[in-house]
Amino acid sequence: MTTCGFSIRIVLLNLLLCVIIFYSVYYVVLCFCFTAFRLQMLDGLAPFDFKTSPSWIHSYYLVLLVSLEITYLVSGLLFVLVVEEWVWDYAVTVTVIHITITAAVMSEFPLTLHWWAALGSGLILMVCVGQSLAYYLFKDNFIYPVLDNF
């Protein structure tokens, strides 16, 4: 029983670290993007804003999009340091937490297609880059199934 409780604590601690990494990276990247795009208004709701109309000429939308994608890329690399080869599991869980927090902060569930597309592409980016780095760093630890009679 203590072994199960111990591993659950480790998983929850790793999840907490991944959430902290994700939002820390997100706010740092947002600050850089707001500065790079010379925008004055950075509020705490920016990571959760799915209501901004998508437009390639709208600087605020571009900042939100670019910062989300960069956040997923960098977070995928940093998740490897915390969870080693379990990047996929933690990436999906952090994304579900982000969706939940977004719905709570914005007081409605995000139904905009552009937001889901950006979120999905970011998640794929995070997993592909993170898993590739994890494989490179921990390839001796990966468990491969035996497929003798497959």
Score class of each variant (00 low, 15 high):
83 V>G: 09
120 G>K: 11
58 H>P: 06
40 Q>M: 06
86 W>V: 05
43 D>F: 13
75 S>L: 05
66 V>G: 10
87 V>M: 02
109 F>T: 12
90 Y>N: 01
120 G>Y: 03
72 Y>L: 02
52 T>D: 13
99 I>D: 12
88 W>K: 13
108 E>V: 00
118 A>Y: 00
87 V>S: 01
57 I>P: 00
53 S>R: 09
68 L>K: 01
81 L>W: 03
89 D>Q: 10
70 I>Q: 03
48 F>P: 07
77 L>Q: 08
74 V>Y: 00
87 V>L: 03
42 L>H: 03
43 D>L: 11
106 M>R: 05
77 L>E: 05
99 I>S: 13
111 L>C: 08
64 L>R: 02
91 A>R: 01
82 V>I: 12
59 S>W: 12
109 F>G: 08
115 W>A: 12
114 H>D: 15
82 V>A: 09
55 S>H: 06
109 F>M: 09
121 S>N: 07
78 L>F: 01
101 I>Q: 00
110 P>C: 04
81 L>F: 13
62 L>A: 00
114 H>C: 12
111 L>G: 09
48 F>S: 03
86 W>T: 06
105 V>D: 06
123 L>W: 07
97 I>L: 06
70 I>W: 09
67 S>Q: 04
56 W>C: 09
40 Q>K: 15
56 W>M: 10
108 E>F: 04
44 G>M: 06
53 S>Q: 08
84 E>D: 10
100 T>E: 00
58 H>R: 07
105 V>T: 12
92 V>L: 14
67 S>E: 02
109 F>A: 15
111 L>S: 13
116 W>R: 15
118 A>Q: 06
79 F>I: 01
51 K>D: 09
98 H>F: 05
66 V>P: 05
106 M>K: 11
40 Q>G: 06
98 H>G: 09
45 L>A: 07
79 F>E: 00
43 D>P: 13
62 L>H: 00
74 V>N: 01
86 W>L: 05
114 H>V: 11
95 T>F: 14
49 D>S: 10
82 V>W: 12
48 F>N: 12
81 L>H: 06
68 L>V: 01
120 G>C: 15
67 S>D: 03
52 T>M: 04
104 A>M: 07
116 W>H: 13
106 M>L: 04
82 V>N: 12
72 Y>F: 13
94 V>N: 08
78 L>K: 00
92 V>I: 15
106 M>S: 07
64 L>C: 06
45 L>S: 10
91 A>K: 00
107 S>E: 11
125 L>R: 06
53 S>P: 01
105 V>F: 03
97 I>E: 07
45 L>C: 11
99 I>M: 14
124 I>P: 02
52 T>L: 08
105 V>W: 05
53 S>D: 11
48 F>H: 14
97 I>M: 08
60 Y>H: 11
92 V>Q: 12
98 H>C: 14
40 Q>C: 07
70 I>D: 00
42 L>G: 00
75 S>Q: 04
